[in-house]
Design a protein around this nucleic acid. Structure first.
Lengths: 109, 109
DNA sequence: TACTGGTACATAGTAACGCTGAATAGCGGC
DNA sequence: GCCGCTATTCAGCGTTACTATGTACCAGTA
C-alpha cells in the first residue's frame, strides 16, 4: 500500500476496526483477514494487535479468551457502551472531515 | 479540536493544503487563515509552516518571495506539475478510504 | 522615543500512530 | 520430525501534528 494510505489510516484505522466490531465480536486474526477482504491489503498483523491492545486499555472493548481448535486461544473483542460512544464521535469527526474535503475537491477553491 | 481530529488530519492535512493551493497560490499565514475559515479552527501556525517546508522539499510546490507592505516578506507557494500529480493520487487514495468507510457505516457489518 | 498589536515565518521538543521484522506457541498432515 | 496454518506479542523505527517559543517587520499612538 502507498505511503499516502499509511498516513491517512492514522486515526481512521481505529475507527474502522471499531466499526467492524460494532457488527459483531471478533478476534485479532479474523479482523486482519476482514481488513484485507475490505481492500486494505497491506495492513500488518502487528498493527492490528497493537491497536486492539490500545482500545482495550482505553476501555472501548470487552475481551474474552476462547480456546481455539486450531492454534492458540483467541482473544475475542466486543464493543462495549463506551466504545459505542467513541465510535459515534468518530463518525461525527469523519463526517466533518469528509464534508470539508468534498467541498474542497468540488469547488477547487 | 479533539484528539480524534488531530490523528485523522495526519495524512489528510497535507492534501487539504495542496488542494487549497490548487485553487490559487498562497502564503503560509493566509493558508492558516483559510484553514480556520474552513472550520479547522485549532490548527497551529507552526504546523502549517512545517508542512509547507515539507512539501517544498519534496518538490510539490514552487516558492516565490514577495515583499509585503505589512510585516516581513511572504513566501508564496504555488502547486507545480509534480504537486498536481501527487494531489491526484491523494484524491484517489481518499476516495477509496471514503468509499470503504461509507460502506462500513451503512452496512454495519 | 516607547509601547502595542497585527502580520509573517521558523524551530526545538513531544506524543501518537502505523509499519517492519522477528519471536513464540499450538495444532494437523506428510 | 518437520512444515504450514492459525494466533498473539514485542522492540525499534519513521512520519505527522501539536505545544511553546522566538524572530522580525511595520503601523498607530501617546
Amino acid at each position: 500500500m502507498g505511503k499516502q494510505m499509511t498516513e491517512m489510516l492514522k486515526g481512521t484505522l481505529e475507527g474502522i476496526v471499531l466499526a467492524i466490531l460494532a457488527g459483531r465480536a471478533a478476534y485479532g486474526y479474523e479482523i486482519t483477514a476482514r481488513l484485507r477482504a475490505l481492500g486494505f491489503s497491506d495492513i500488518a498483523e502487528g498493527t492490528v494487535y497493537a491497536l486492539l491492545i490500545r482500545v482495550e486499555q482505553r476501555g472501548f472493548v470487552d475481551v474474552e479468551k476462547i480456546p481455539s481448535e486450531l492454534g492458540p486461544p483467541r482473544k475475542v473483542y466486543s464493543l462495549n457502551g463506551q466504545g459505542q460512544e467513541y465510535l459515534e464521535e468518530f463518525w461525527r469527526t469523519w463526517s466533518f472531515l469528509a464534508g470539508q474535503l468534498d467541498q474542497l475537491r468540488g469547488g477547487g477553491r
